[in-house]
């Protein structure tokens, strides 16, 4: 018997979908996420085929992976198929650092639409103006009353990563904040 994967946001799928077209909101669950602590990520970048972000509050992507800057020696690797904790730890070798599978620690919600920044501005104090937060921006901050990792993609696309236990709150908040734009 193999157990089914469940996400707490599954119950919100329809309500989030109903925000379209003002806001397209959908969970992207069950992605492999690895929290990597290292002061020198160059070897890891080579193994994964994507450079690690050198600038705070940005993310990089390539080779099916994304690497999010979380701190001066801390990164979140959203890994492609086949890359797991062992693979990345192997790449780290004997250098100082750590690799932890945190796949289920957070879930992701993709947001897209003309009102993405408006909706987020109801709860996020970080300046999300395209000039201040261009594509590639990745900030850890508060959205309303929960912590989030906020990735700005090109156009009007944003991905929010939220602690799994807060995901329901985030979904409820998004639905409420978007009401005005429906």
């Amino acid at each position: 018997m193999t157990a089914d994967l469940t996400s707490l946001l599954a119950a919100w799928t329809d309500r989030l979908a109903a925000l379209a077209p003002a806001l397209t909101a959908a969970e992207r669950p069950f992605r492999t996420q690895l929290t990597v602590r290292t002061a020198d990520p160059s070897a890891l970048g080579e193994t994964l085929g994507v450079g690690f972000p050198a600038v705070p509050c940005t993310f990089t992507s390539g080779a099916g992976a994304e690497v999010l800057w979380l701190g001066p020696d801390e990164f979140l690797v959203v890994a492609p198929e086949g890359v797991n904790e062992e693979v990345v730890r192997g790449a780290l070798g004997s250098s100082r650092g750590s690799v932890v599978d945190t796949s289920a620690q957070r879930t992701a919600v993709d947001l897209e639409g003309p009102h993405v920044r408006d909706v987020l501005a109801h709860g996020c104090a970080v300046d999300l103006h395209p000039a201040a937060a261009p594509a590639g921006t990745c900030v850890q901050t508060l959205l309303a009353r929960t912590g989030v990792i906020l990735q700005v993609r090109d156009g009007d696309r944003v991905t929010l990563l939220v602690r799994s236990s807060f995901a329901g709150y985030l979904a409820a908040w998004l639905c409420d904040a978007a009401t005005e734009y429906l």
Partner: peptide, 10 residues
């Protein structure tokens, strides 16, 4: 020093 100015609530 890393992330720039943020609100004190953070």
């Amino acid at each position: 020093p890393w992330c720039g100015p943020r609100e004190e609530a953070e």
